[in-house]
Amino acid sequence: MELAFIILVVAILCAFAVVRELKTKNMFGVAFAAISVLVFGFFSIATLYWELIRPLFQS
Rank of each mutant, 00 (worst) to 15 (best):
L3H: 13
L3G: 08
L3V: 14
A4N: 05
I7S: 07
L8V: 03
V9S: 07
V9R: 07
V10I: 11
V10A: 12
A11Q: 09
I12H: 00
L13E: 00
A15E: 03
F16N: 03
F16Y: 02
F16H: 04
F16S: 03
V19R: 06
V19W: 07
R20K: 14
L22Q: 06
L22T: 05
L22H: 04
K23I: 02
T24M: 03
T24N: 10
T24I: 08
T24A: 07
K25H: 14
M27I: 08
M27S: 15
F28I: 12
F28H: 12
G29T: 00
G29F: 01
G29P: 00
A31K: 11
A31Y: 13
A31H: 03
F32T: 12
A33M: 06
A34K: 03
A34P: 07
V37S: 06
L38C: 12
L38Y: 06
L38R: 07
V39F: 13
V39Q: 07
F40R: 02
G41A: 05
F42T: 09
F43C: 05
S44H: 03
S44P: 06
I45S: 08
I45F: 05
A46H: 06
A46G: 01
A46W: 05
T47P: 02
L48H: 05
Y49P: 09
W50H: 15
E51I: 14
E51S: 15
E51A: 13
E51F: 15
I53N: 11
I53K: 07
I53V: 12
I53Y: 03
R54T: 15
R54H: 11
R54K: 14
F57K: 08
Q58H: 15
S59M: 15
